[in-house]
Amino acid sequence: MLNFLQWLESTPWSIALLESLYVWPLLESTHVLSLGLFVGTTVMMDLRLLGVSFRSVPTSAFTHRLLPWTRAGFAVMAVTGLLLFYSSPTRYYFNIFFRIKVLLLILAGLNVWLFHSRIHRLVSKWDLDPVPPRAARFAAGVSIVAWAGVVVAGRMVAYNWFDCDLQPQPALINWAADCVVPEP
């Protein structure tokens, strides 16, 4: 894995991206602004599923008409995010916040998959309910917490507080970030 990332980092495009004056900031800005589209529309649907707001709007209106916009937002986030990762793969690989972000992304992704494969299949039974069934509300709660965690962890990736080359670090950090600590 690490060998692959080191090779990735040595490719000319990766170096060009990292050293670019405008492309990197533009990618990063697109990544951040797409949050409004992706996480924003996700949260609106979660508020409906929780029965907190949009109570008289059928849930299927959200999953049929708003979800394409959410998907488009995710596509932009994924592409810009992968490119940003490509600009400095090993730095992110050893970054504790990046690792937390990836774990939360997996959790959020599993939740999306479970919701659509199980809970949403029976939507016709509760489409018009002001407050959807408990399983749907639970999935919406997990969604909000997981995506908020992804956003916060993603923001913190920028800080080097726990970087491996800043020793000493707590043993837990060195273990979680896979740091190779030289013997004193």
Binding site: V32, L35, G36, L37, V39, G40, T41, T42, V43, M44, L66, W69, W147, A148, V151, V152, R155, M156, Y159
Partner: peptide, 21 residues
């Protein structure tokens, strides 16, 4: 600063959603 900034960013997500719908 990072914590306040993170809250600022979370609120940006909510603003984006409530504007966009």
């Amino acid at each position: 600063f990072p914590v306040i900034e993170a809250v600022h960013l979370l609120a940006l997500c909510l603003l984006g959603g409530s504007l966009l719908v």
